[in-house]
Structure formats: structure tokens, C-alpha cells
Design a protein around this nucleic acid. Structure first.
Lengths: 145, 145
DNA sequence: TTTAAATTCCCCACTTATCCCCACCATTCC
DNA sequence: GGAATGGTGGGGATAAGTGGGGAATTTAAA
């Protein structure tokens, strides 16, 4: 289970260190575009459950083609190197606006990779809306003893 | 599994480098016309499963006849040469509006080949509709571990 | 049939990017 | 304090992408 947030740097070659805790589960992984302008990193095993479903979407519907392109073509196989780093392809760094300082966040079954500035903005925006978020949370906490 | 997007150039002789990752699976392949003005490249093995199905489409419907002509009659056998390139026939380059800069996209079981400008337009159009994409995705991602 | 022109294919060469390795510093843990 | 671990930077070997020459083959024309 991936938890916590880490501040790391992307170097000149586009490499990003995977938090050491998570490396064993991410030796083989897939990065792709996420919502809200971040990248998402799945363990390969998880990704292999998603990909066939996306690929099987009907090609006669335009919206389905767009979805499968959005998800599959923007994804990239990655492996951690000897130093525990992955290489993020150019087009994904551009998409997420990644420069140097990034935040790697553990979200239970996946990692999210954010540009640090955007992460902070998102965080403060979230805190302002904490009331409505609290409402959504109440649904979840009903069965805690 | 083919994933990711690659920017390559078509040279004056109509040759296109296949991304090195994919070459082993595409020593023998078939290119044909795809939807949305792109070309599609199948491994020969996959093509041999697709072609009979396309050929078997009902001949009493005009739209079916048109589709099977569209796909079958424009298909062409290709092999990667010593430098890892394939030759794209004139009529396919014309069809897809391929000039020099192209994008090769991995879509799980096939590659798509796009003119770079058209690829970018399609991408930005898709990102504008990312809400509807999110909806379609929610159906798929429910059982991610 | 011969010749010329065009096309295809094979090979070589150059530039750029990628990968693998080593080195360093900071922090943590014994 | 010393050793181990984690993050970061960079050099050098290797591979990938690209362009072009020239032989072989095909096509067309004379």
C-alpha cells in the first residue's frame, strides 16, 4: 500500500527517484496521464488489469477511440534503474508541467507525480473547500466502530 | 503490449523507423488505413485474425461493404529492414497526410501512425472533453487493486 | 533487343539519445 | 562515530534514429 508524500527532483536527463519504500512493488510499472494535470504510476500488475479493457472498447465509436488513445498512447512502460530511478518521457513531463521540483504522492494502489507548485495550489484549494469534502467523507466513516 | 508515443521522421524515400522496443514483434507486419485519418500497423499474426472477420462482414449492407474495402484493399505487407525501418507506400502516406514529422502511437495490440499536426489537434480536442472521458473511465477502474 | 530512366534494396556513416556505471553528499540507524 | 541507505549528478559506452550513396532490379521507351 502506497502512502505519504515525497519531494524529489527530476534531473537533466528526465530521471526521477522512486521513493525507496515503494521500489520493490514498482520494479516494473506504467506511467500515464492522470486528471488534474498530474501523472499516475501503476505497478505493472495493476495496469495489466486495466489495459485489456481499454483496448477492447469498440472502435466504431469515435469517443471510444479517443479514450483508448488518451489512455494507451499516453502510457509508457518504465523500469527502475540501478539507482532506483525511472525515466519520464518528454511528452509526459510536458503534459504535467514537470520542471525540477516534483511531489510524489502515494495513493493506496498507485503513485501520483505532481509539479510542486501545482501540488501546493491544489492542496490549499482543497483546504478551502474542506467543508464540502467533510460531507463526502461522512459517507465513508459510517461503519467505523 | 504496445504503449507510448514516439516522434519520428519519414525520410525522402518514404521510410519510417519503428520504435526499437516494438521491432521484435513487428518483423512482419501489415499497414492499412485507420479511422480519423491515421494509419494502423498490425503484427502479421494479429492481422491474420482480423482480416477474415473484416472480410466476413455482411455484404448486404452498403456501409459494411465500404468498411471492408476501406480496410482490406488498402492493406499492405511490410517488413522492417536492417535499420529497423518500414517503407510506407505512397497511397497510404497521401491518405494520412504524412509529410515528415509523424507520431507513432502504441495502442495495446497495434500501432497508429499520425501526421504530427493532426495528432496534436486530436489530442487537444480530446483533452477538452476529458470530463466525458472520466465518466467512461469510471466504469473500467472500479476493480483496480 | 537494347538503352535509358526510375525505383527498390542494401549498406555505410553521422548525430543524438539512452543506458549503465561510478561518485558524491545527506540522512538515518546502529 | 562509523556504517549503511537514499537521493542526486555526471561520464562514457552503446544503441537508436536519420540521411545518403550505390548496386541491383524493375519499368519504360527507343
Amino acid at each position: 500500500m502506497f502512502l505519504g508524500q515525497y519531494s524529489h527532483n527530476i534531473d537533466a536527463k528526465g530521471r526521477l527517484a522512486v521513493p525507496a519504500k515503494f521500489r520493490n512493488d514498482l520494479k516494473k510499472a506504467v506511467v500515464t496521464q492522470g486528471f488534474d494535470n498530474c501523472l499516475v504510476l501503476y505497478p505493472k500488475k495493476s495496469w495489466e488489469q486495466i489495459a485489456p479493457k481499454v483496448a477492447a472498447m469498440p472502435i466504431n465509436k469515435e469517443s471510444s477511440r479517443a479514450v483508448s488513445r488518451f489512455i494507451l498512447a499516453s502510457a509508457m512502460d518504465v523500469e527502475v534503474d540501478g539507482q532506483g530511478r525511472i525515466v519520464l518521457p518528454d511528452y509526459l513531463r510536458k503534459f504535467a508541467g514537470l520542471d525540477k521540483k516534483v511531489v510524489v504522492a502515494g495513493l493506496y494502489d498507485r503513485l501520483e507525480i505532481w509539479d510542486e507548485d501545482q501540488w501546493n495550489k491544489m492542496k490549499s484549494a482543497t483546504e478551502k473547500n474542506s467543508n464540502s469534502i467533510a460531507e463526502q467523507l461522512s459517507d465513508l466513516s459510517t461503519n467505523i466502530e
